[in-house]
C-alpha cells in the first residue's frame, strides 16, 4: 500500500489533463508559429526559410483584408444579437405559465442548434434560391422586390449572418433560461415585496445574478462567431461572391486546404490566435469586474 500525499499527488492527478492540453493544443500552436516562417512543402517535407514574408504577404492580400473586415462585421452584428435576443426571449419564456408551451418554445428555439450545418445549409439554399426559393416567392406574393440573396455581393454577408444567428442563438437561450430559473425564489419575492417592477427586477436583480452566465456566453459567443460561422459560409457561399462573405477562419481554410499554401496559412493561423487572445483578454479586462459569482 502507498499513499499519495502533498503537492506530488496533485501534480499526478492533473498530469493527464496537462499532458493532453500540452500535446494537442500548445505544441501544435508553437509548431504552427514555427511553420509560419517557412514555405512548407508537405509532400517533400521541405522547409524553405521565408522570415516574415508570409506575414507581410498575408497583410498585403486584399482577400485577407476583406476577410478581416467581414469578421469584424460578423462580430459586431452577431455577438450583441446572440446575447441580447436570447436573453430577451429567455425572460419572456419565464413569464409563460403553461409548462407544455414552455417546453415547445424551448425545443423550437433549440432545434436549429442541433441541426447539422449540411442539412441546414441545403434547406437554406432552397429558401434563398432566387428563382424557385421560398423567400422570393413570398416577397413577390406580397408585392416586394425579389433578390439574388447569396449571389449578391451586397447581401451575401447578411444572409450568412442571418443563418448563423438562426443556427446559434438557441444555445445561449437555453443557458440564460437555466440561469434565470436558478435565481433563488426568495430574492425575487423580496424584490416584489419592495415594489420592484419587471424592468427594475430584471435590470437590478436578475441580470446581475446571472452575470457569470452572461460573461461565459459573451466569451464563447465571440469564439463561436469567429469559428463556427465557417460551416455556414462553406455551405452557403464558399466565401463568395469574390470573398464578400468570407471570414478569417474560412480564409485560413482556403489558404491551407484549397491552395495548399501551408506556410502562409500558418501565418494566418498565428494572426487569428493573436486576435482571439487579445479579444478574450479585453473581454476579461472590461467585463469580469461586473461578474458576481455569489
Amino acid at each position: 500500500m502507498f499513499a499519495l500525499q502533498g503537492r506530488y499527488a496533485a501534480w499526478l492527478f492533473v498530469a493527464p489533463a496537462i499532458l493532453l492540453v500540452a500535446v494537442f493544443i500548445y505544441l501544435p500552436m508553437v509548431l504552427n508559429v514555427g511553420v509560419s516562417f517557412y514555405d512548407w512543402s508537405v509532400l517533400r517535407n521541405e522547409f524553405t526559410w521565408k522570415g516574415v514574408e508570409n506575414y507581410l504577404s498575408t497583410l498585403d492580400n486584399i482577400d485577407f483584408r476583406s476577410a478581416f473586415a467581414n469578421t469584424a462585421i460578423y462580430l459586431a452584428v452577431l455577438v450583441p444579437a446572440q446575447i441580447a435576443l436570447p436573453l430577451l426571449l429567455a425572460f419572456l419564456m419565464l413569464r409563460v405559465r403553461n409548462r407544455l408551451l414552455v417546453r415547445a418554445y424551448r425545443a423550437a428555439y433549440f432545434i436549429p442548434t442541433i441541426v447539422s450545418f449540411s442539412i441546414a445549409g441545403v434547406v437554406w439554399l432552397w429558401m434563398f434560391n432566387p428563382i424557385v426559393g421560398f423567400l422570393n416567392t413570398f416577397f413577390e406574393a406580397i408585392g416586394l422586390q425579389s433578390h439574388r440573396w447569396l449571389n449578391d455581393p451586397d447581401m451575401a454577408l447578411w444572409c450568412v449572418a442571418a443563418v448563423a444567428f438562426w443556427k446559434g442563438f438557441g444555445l445561449n437561450l437555453i443557458l440564460y433560461a437555466a440561469a434565470l430559473v436558478g435565481i433563488p425564489r426568495e430574492v425575487v419575492e423580496a424584490a416584489d415585496l419592495d415594489g420592484a417592477g419587471p424592468w427594475t427586477r430584471a435590470l437590478r436583480i436578475e441580470i446581475p445574478m446571472i452575470s457569470p452566465t452572461l460573461f461565459f456566453t459573451g466569451v464563447t459567443t465571440v469564439l463561436i462567431v469567429m469559428d463556427e460561422i465557417v460551416g455556414v459560409v462553406d455551405v452557403l457561399t464558399e466565401g463568395g461572391p469574390y470573398n464578400s462573405s468570407s471570414n478569417l477562419v474560412y480564409y485560413l481554410y482556403d489558404r491551407a486546404f484549397r491552395q495548399f499554401n501551408f506556410g502562409e496559412a500558418a501565418a494566418v493561423a498565428t494572426l487569428i490566435i493573436a486576435i482571439v487572445a487579445v479579444a478574450t483578454w479585453l473581454q476579461f479586462r472590461a467585463f469580469e469586474r461586473y461578474v458576481h459569482y455569489q
Binding site: I131, R148, N151
Partner: peptide, 8 residues
C-alpha cells in the same frame, strides 16, 4: 440572366 449559383 440574373446570375445565380450552380446548385441554384
Amino acid at each position: 440572366w440574373n446570375p445565380i449559383g450552380l446548385s441554384e
